[in-house]
Simulated assay, not measured.
Amino acid sequence: MSGHAALVGGEAVPAERVEAVLDAVPARHRQTRPEPPARAQRQRRRWATQVVVVDELARRVCAERRLAPPPEVSPARVLAVSGTEVADLGSIVAVALAHSPAVRALLAALEAEQKVPEQTARAYYGRNPDRFLTAEALRRGVDPYGVARAGDFVPFEAVRDEVVRELRRAVGRQAFFDWLDGARAEVAYAPGHEHPGDPSHPDHEHRH
């Protein structure tokens, strides 16, 4: 397929980049249920277009932020994508992270920028006692929400840094999705490359 897949800020994104992602990502990473072959192929191309668009948008914002310029993407090899990442991020962003150094650089920068107040970390610790039982309490089968002693829990001070890292990561990912939602507004898709969930085409779906 020749021509462009999308226009980002008025500049063409070559369709060849989409084909490269299609070649690099096995179809089994995309499909979660049987679909008619023609429909599946159309939807897979639209899905791959989103991976490329996320990469292109991230490249541009990395340049604007003067983040370390990412090396050229080598689409012949996509890093492994875990089922947990797909569940947490959606398949488009999970594969974009594996495929695109720019996406990884941007997400890392957004995570690093987040500030987690002490009270937020303490509140998280208090809301999730099941995550902080001691090994001994776990062996005894202590109910963290029932009868438990203070000594059954790892002290907050011992897990504070871990909690802060986890919360920073979560807020950073939300910042990434907020950025992506806004950045996609400047994208115009060529026919056959629309977002998989775009209701203007008959094959649309809401799975990511």
Results as ranks from 00 to 15, higher is better:
residue 26 P to K: 07
residue 18 V to W: 01
residue 64 E to D: 11
residue 10 G to I: 13
residue 192 G to C: 08
residue 154 V to I: 15
residue 75 P to A: 11
residue 187 V to G: 05
residue 131 R to D: 09
residue 175 A to W: 06
residue 170 A to P: 15
residue 81 V to G: 12
residue 121 A to R: 00
residue 121 A to V: 06
residue 81 V to A: 04
residue 103 V to P: 06
residue 200 S to K: 10
residue 93 V to Y: 01
residue 188 A to K: 09
residue 47 W to S: 06
residue 165 R to G: 13
residue 69 P to K: 13
residue 53 V to N: 02
residue 113 E to T: 09
residue 104 R to T: 05
residue 49 T to M: 06
residue 144 P to T: 06
residue 68 A to W: 03
residue 24 A to N: 07
residue 164 V to Q: 03
residue 159 V to Q: 05
residue 3 G to Y: 12
residue 196 P to W: 05
residue 100 S to P: 12
residue 206 H to C: 07
residue 31 Q to W: 15
residue 160 R to L: 00
residue 25 V to M: 02
residue 35 E to A: 08
residue 44 R to I: 10
residue 170 A to C: 06
residue 87 A to K: 10
residue 149 R to S: 08
residue 197 G to F: 02
residue 98 A to L: 06
residue 201 H to S: 09
residue 86 V to T: 03
residue 194 E to T: 06
residue 144 P to Y: 00
residue 23 D to H: 13
residue 78 V to K: 10
residue 166 E to G: 08
residue 175 A to D: 10
residue 22 L to W: 14
residue 99 H to A: 11
residue 199 P to A: 05
residue 74 S to Y: 15
residue 19 E to Q: 12
residue 151 G to D: 00
residue 12 A to Y: 05
residue 39 R to C: 15
residue 188 A to T: 14
residue 191 P to K: 01
residue 145 Y to M: 04
residue 14 P to D: 11
residue 162 E to D: 06
residue 158 A to L: 10
residue 139 R to A: 07
residue 6 A to I: 14
residue 115 K to V: 00
residue 3 G to P: 11
residue 32 T to V: 03
residue 129 P to N: 01
residue 123 A to F: 12
residue 3 G to M: 13
residue 94 A to C: 02
residue 37 P to N: 01
residue 82 S to M: 03
residue 84 T to R: 14
residue 71 P to Q: 04
residue 205 E to I: 00
residue 36 P to R: 09
residue 132 F to P: 02
residue 56 E to N: 05
residue 41 Q to G: 08
residue 200 S to P: 08
residue 135 A to Q: 00
residue 35 E to D: 09
residue 155 P to F: 08
residue 56 E to D: 08
residue 24 A to R: 09
residue 154 V to F: 08
residue 76 A to D: 07
residue 51 V to H: 02
residue 76 A to Q: 05
residue 3 G to K: 15
residue 182 G to W: 09
residue 158 A to I: 07
residue 78 V to W: 03
residue 137 A to I: 01
residue 2 S to T: 14
residue 154 V to R: 11
residue 54 V to Y: 05
residue 33 R to E: 14
residue 130 D to N: 13
residue 105 A to Q: 00
